[in-house]
Amino acid sequence: MRRALTLALLILASVPLLYAVSLLPPVGSEDNPTYTYVVPHYLEEGPEETGCENIVTAVILNYRGFDTGGEVTVIFTALMAVFGVLLIPRPAEKVRQPESAVPVSPVTLFIVRTLAPFIVVFSVYQIINGHSTPGGGFQGGTIIGALLIAASLVMGSERTQRLLPEGVRRWLQPAAVLMFAVVGVTGMLLFGEYLSYPIEGEYLFLRVPFLTLVEIGIGVGGAAIVASIFWAMEGSDG
């Protein structure tokens, strides 16, 4: 009986959805609204309106700058939620996970240590150069965060956390949000609108520093948040 009801509900719900799909313009058709209005505008006017060589950066940091600011806030809030759930003090039981029974292999340790500088160089390149090539602050930051996780796995969380002491970490976690606020308010004071970047005039030299600062903020914040979530879930604090 319940199965039949579920099935009937599913079919009932799928009918309007399928009908809506049938109303969509065909995939890849030239008359789709995305191809006739938004995308041509971005592609044709983007470089002049924003001064960005890479159209993806133009969309992420200029046209949709507010969205990106909201996204980094969401990620930071997610970290707060993880802390809120996992760092509740539990007096009855000690939450610390026992160390793994398997000692770390020297081979793995050596390889991670050898590759670490390359990984750092790659992600810094992504963060700094993100406004003119694929990639950017978030991708580069996540790669550094993954490196921190790998280091925690082979060297132990305690030793890795010494790279980012508690006091430093607490300031790096909201780095993206803070950097957006700083750059946004500076733009507001200088040019009248929140998060506005100069594309001409005497302040033009500020454009690249602004974009780079935001990218660095997103990268550093992303790295700190990714690593902190891992440490919080693993039970050695964030």
């Binding site: 992504q126 694929p134 990639g135 993954a146 996780i149 990714v226 979530i229 891992f230």
Partner: peptide, 21 residues
């Protein structure tokens, strides 16, 4: 390529580790 990079770093890398933990 931007989304691909994010997917590789976040989806295949970090999320898996978090799931495993």
């Amino acid at each position: 390529p931007d989304v691909a990079l994010t997917e590789a770093a976040v989806g295949a890398g970090v999320t898996t580790v978090l799931f495993l933990v």
